[in-house]
Simulated scan of single mutants.
Amino acid sequence: MKRTVTHLADGRELIYFDRHDDADRSAVDTRTLPPPPRASELRRDRLLGEWVTIAAHRQDRTYLPPSDQCPLCPSTPGRPTEIPAADYEVAVFENRFPSYSGRVPEQLDGVVPGLGRCEVVCFSPDHDASFATLDLAQVGTVMEAWADRTAELSTLPGVGQVFCFENRGAEIGVTLAHPHGQIYAYPFVTPRTERMLQVARAHRDETGGDLFADVLAAERAAEVRVVAANDLWTAFVPEAARWPFEVHVFPHRKVPDLSALSAEERAAFAPLYVDVLRRLDRLFGVPMPYVSAWHQAPVAVDRDLAYLHLQLFSSRRAANKLKYLAGSEAAMGAFVNDVYPEDAARRLREAE
């Protein structure tokens, strides 16, 4: 895998990932850009004990541009983009409108800065592609990029957790249609991860077992909610799914993060994941909006408790209906699902 590091006109880092060593990545960003924004502000919610990030500069981020003005497509003569090259395989660059940044103001005046880093991962140069249409070699390149960035971002000062994810579809809130994902290097451990690790610790103390491994073993034994599986990975609908269509993808070997996966595990993930994505798209005959979220171990704590896995979920509950987070979910955090998880798993298995 060839890895080429360069910089955009405003100093942000850009990294190309290529399967071929002869890829030419000498193109230069010719734009005139303002300096990147300073780090956001962290504020503590005293009622919940959670961090909230205030990033007002993100109000000005690019919003639903027409396809001929997409900033994630390769550059063409007369139209430079975030990717200076005329073509690319996978490109990763610092977000122009980051939620977290290492650029800290000199005068903080009691403000807690949102230290960290936010990156954009472009999965393909093809504006009309999707992750589900990538060939398996391309998925492998994306996996290499995720693993590389997880390892590197974990070494940054103050980073507590690295989160690789993809939001797909306007229904989810995506503002750029080009196939891409993001990586957040948080300056804290996220609430969901803290809660999962708390439950995992209690399970270990009570039973001596590993919560995640026990859940995976139970789902594989029951089979009724398994959507797809191979020798190294299993995809299943969780027993208490919060979303109408939600699939968790676990490696059979416990590892803390993407960088710890073996070459065989990375290769085995690609066909299974693409199969699940294509089943989601076939379910209603329209592209399925989704969030695809990698749950990784925190950088410095509880790495022995954590178990790498992917959570994939959609807000679509029927061909012409979406699930909105209304009163119970949004205010109380108490989910009500309109679809039996067993039915969701069956329908996905039948979506050949």
Rank of each mutant, 00 (worst) to 15 (best):
D210M: 02
D210E: 15
L211M: 09
F212Y: 05
F212D: 00
A213S: 15
A213D: 15
A213Q: 15
A213L: 14
D214I: 03
D214L: 06
D214K: 07
D214N: 00
D214Q: 05
V215F: 10
V215D: 12
L216K: 02
L216D: 02
L216F: 04
L216R: 12
A217T: 07
A217V: 04
A218G: 09
A218H: 06
E219T: 08
R220C: 03
R220A: 14
R220M: 13
A221C: 14
A221Q: 06
A222C: 00
E223Y: 08
E223K: 10
V224E: 08
V224H: 14
V226G: 06
V226D: 01
V226L: 00
V227E: 07
V227Y: 11
A228F: 00
A228C: 04
A229Q: 12
A229V: 10
N230A: 12
N230I: 00
N230E: 07
N230Y: 02
D231I: 08
D231S: 00
D231H: 08
L232V: 05
W233S: 02
T234K: 04
A235C: 11
A235R: 02
A235L: 11
F236V: 09
F236K: 03
F236S: 11
F236E: 01
V237F: 09
P238R: 03
P238V: 10
E239T: 15
E239S: 15
A240D: 15
A240Y: 14
A241H: 08
A241T: 02
R242T: 05
W243T: 08
W243P: 04
W243Y: 00
P244M: 08
P244I: 04
F245P: 09
F245C: 10
F245I: 05
E246D: 12
E246Y: 08
V247E: 13
V247C: 09
H248D: 14
H248F: 15
H248A: 10
V249F: 05
V249L: 10
F250R: 00
P251A: 11
P251V: 04
P251M: 05
H252Y: 09
H252E: 15
R253P: 00
R253E: 11
K254N: 05
